[in-house]
């Protein structure tokens, strides 16, 4: 699909190196939440940045360059998921004890439930959740980025929250 960039979307161009240096930490965190592993996140981000570099003359004048890269990351992960899901079994990982539970750096109450939930979600629903609660995007912004109706995004986020609530209730019941 070819895209015509409207005048009001054109920003002052910036240098690729400087932009990557400034934005890479944030984009890598997003990629990590999307993919669930550091290695996959680095692969997804590097591929996304390579595509961005190819088109930098045009991307550099966009106001929301991050959205462009985030979408590349989401699409790359969905493609990966379809192609190589056989190598990993999210259910088995989720049902086992989370590796993060042993990570002394993670001490936020409920963080483990959030992570287990994320790992159990299909990539598009996971993207909707991460974009909503990590990137603080609005539903219309997420719908635009994921190229799907806003109602679908709302439904996916709502269902994820409902599942999280069930997981917490179940955990609390076990802890009593």
């Amino acid at each position: 699909m070819n895209v015509t960039v409207a005048d009001d979307e054109v920003a002052a161009p910036v240098e690729f190196d400087g932009w990557v240096a400034a934005r890479a930490p944030s984009l890598l965190r997003f990629a990590y939440l999307m993919t669930g592993s550091r290695e996959a996140a680095e692969d997804a981000l590097q591929t996304a940045l390579a595509k961005t570099y190819e088109h930098w003359s045009r991307v550099s004048v966009m106001h929301d360059r991050d959205a462009y890269v985030r979408r590349l990351i989401v699409n790359a992960h969905i493609s990966w998921w379809r192609r190589f899901a056989r190598r990993e079994s999210p259910v088995d990982e989720v049902r086992g004890s989370s590796a993060l539970a042993d990570d002394p750096g993670i001490s936020v109450p409920g963080a483990d439930a959030v992570w287990r939930l994320c790992q159990s979600l299909p990539p598009k629903q996971r993207a909707a959740v991460v974009l909503r609660f990590f990137e603080d995007l609005t539903y219309p912004e997420i719908a635009e980025l994921l190229r799907c109706p806003e109602s679908t995004v709302r439904s996916q986020v709502h269902r994820a929250l409902a599942t999280l609530r069930e997981m917490i209730e179940s955990q609390e019941a076990r802890d009593v």
Binding site: L28, L33, S107, A111, D112, L161
Partner: peptide, 19 residues
């Protein structure tokens, strides 16, 4: 739930640093 989701995601995202 919103707060939990946000704090949980941030906690995990903070583990990674760019190479």
């Amino acid at each position: 739930l919103d707060r939990l989701m946000r704090s949980g995601l941030r906690a995990h995202a903070s583990r990674v640093r760019p190479w």
